[in-house]
Structure formats: C-alpha cells, structure tokens
Simulated scan of single mutants.
Amino acid sequence: MNSISPNLNIMIKACEKASKVIIRDFGEIENLQVSKKGPRDFVTKTDKKVEKILIEELSKAKKNYSFITEESGIIKNTNEEACWIIDPIDGTINFMHGIPHFAISIALRINDELKSGLIFDPIKNEIFYAEKNSGAYFNNHRVRVSSKIDLEECLFSSNSYGVKFATPNLNMRNTGCAALDLAYVGSGRLDGFFHNKINIWDIAAGILIIDEAGGKVSDISAFKDEAIDLRASNSNIYKKMLEKIKNF
C-alpha cells in the first residue's frame, strides 16, 4: 500500500463511518418501493444523515476548515482558503430505486487547488482516491487512464442530454452517477466523460483522480462552483472527443 497523507486518512475514515448508514438504509429501500409515500423522503433523510457524519468527522480533525456541500451549501469557518467539498450520495436516484451504483465524494481544496480527492462506492466496496502529485489509486493499487486511441473502441459517459447529443457518433452510457463516471475514467474503465451545467461537489474528487491518472480535464477555473461544463478523457482522445461534441 502506498503511504497516504493524514488528510486522506481522515477522508477515508469519515467515508467508512458514513457508509454504514448508507448500506443500512439501502437495505430498507426495497420495503419503501412499495409504500404509498415512496422512498424520496427517506432518501433525503439518508443524504442529510450521511452529510452530517462526514462534516462531524472531518471537523474533528480540522476544526477551522470550511465546507461546500450539496445539502447544506457553503459553511464558512475561520479558514476559508481550506475547503472540504462533499457530495454525501452522488447517484441519489439510483439509490432511491435500489440500484447499487452511487458513491460518496469528498475533495479537499486549498487556495483554489485540489489537494486530495476520494470517491467511495459503499456497495461494491470500491475506493478511488488521488493526492496532488502523488498519483491515483483504486483499492490501494496505482491506476492510469486508458491508452485507447481509436474512438470506435472507446466508451464514454454523460447525462441523458449528453448521451442523446453524442449518439451515434460515440459509444455512450448514462450511469446516473457522475462521481463514479469520473473515477472510472481515471481507472481506465471508461475512456471519457462530458457533462454541462454540473456542480463542483459532483466532480471535484473525480477531476483530481483523472488528472493524477494521466488524463486530461478541461479548465473549470472560469466557472463558479455551479453550472460547470466539464470535459475529461484519456489524453490520446481528448481532442477527438471535443471535435465530436463541439456543439454540445
């Protein structure tokens, strides 16, 4: 196993604790599918519970760091330059339907630079992480983006709009979880990802993972933390992918 920083260690521990709630609640989803009320309210509660655990655990270790979270928005602490970026469950709709494809995403950004990123899939027990200038890892093994060159052999992911736009020019998937899509690009399972109007908490960890895995990610510095147009792929096909989706 590679040596990991104290910050990443904190992130892993927080995810492990929060994932117990997710796994337990996911087990309840089947019962809720048939109830009149349906699972939506239940899932909102799970999201909030998970976020609360993550914030508590990360704050114990770094009392003065700030937060950007999906559920609670911006939480300013004394150190505004150091910021945890959290999505407690990315892929909520999958979760709500009992589909085991969703993840916790946490990133640490200091002075506008992503330093650590972690994407944890609690059901498959798969963990993807990266630290600035230290490479990208999947379950403690170093990973790289794919080395494919021919677009016809590549597999891409996006949301439903992206899939509709790019089919049949590219082989497309819409998995419903942007964080895992990016983790999969970083580990070579997918070859590219593009999405318009996406939020920072969905992509922060994934951007760093792809970057550290030798891939190429579009510059998002012109965007605020919401409504980001993102493009990411292995470096060989990046320009070809952009050409295919230039009007998207």
Rank of each mutant, 00 (worst) to 15 (best):
N234Y: 05
L190W: 07
C15F: 05
E212M: 03
V185G: 00
I74C: 08
F120K: 01
N169Q: 14
I237T: 02
N174M: 09
N159G: 14
F223S: 12
N94S: 07
I149Y: 05
P6H: 12
I203P: 00
I110A: 01
K216L: 08
N111I: 01
E153R: 14
H195V: 13
E212L: 06
H195T: 09
V145G: 03
E56K: 14
F223R: 09
T78Y: 15
D181H: 04
N94T: 07
K13R: 14
F194C: 03
S218F: 07
G162K: 01
K224H: 11
Y238K: 01
N125K: 14
E131D: 05
I209D: 02
Y137I: 05
H101Y: 15
K148V: 01
D41A: 13
D191E: 12
A178V: 14
T46Y: 01
L208F: 00
G206N: 02
L54K: 03
K240T: 04
H195S: 10
N133D: 15
K240H: 09
V185Q: 01
K240M: 11
G192I: 08
H97Q: 15
A205V: 00
I104T: 11
I53Y: 04
I68W: 11
K62L: 13
K60H: 13
E131P: 06
D121G: 02
E113R: 11
D219F: 13
E16A: 10
F67A: 06
K36T: 11
V50L: 05
A179Q: 04
L114E: 08
N79S: 12
E80A: 09
Q33N: 11
G27S: 12
M96F: 02
Y161H: 14
L182H: 06
S158T: 08
I207H: 01
Y184F: 15
P100G: 09
R142S: 14
I123H: 02
C154P: 03
I209Y: 03
D150Q: 10
S221M: 05
T92E: 07
I149R: 14
V21L: 13
S72W: 08
N169A: 13
E81V: 06
A130G: 03
V163G: 06
F95Y: 12
K244M: 12
I89Q: 03
I237L: 06
H101L: 13
S146L: 04
V185I: 10
C15L: 10
E71C: 09
L151R: 03
S221P: 09
S147W: 01
N31C: 00
K216P: 08
A130Y: 00
G38V: 04
D47E: 09
G214S: 09
Y184I: 00
G192E: 10
M11T: 08
I4K: 02
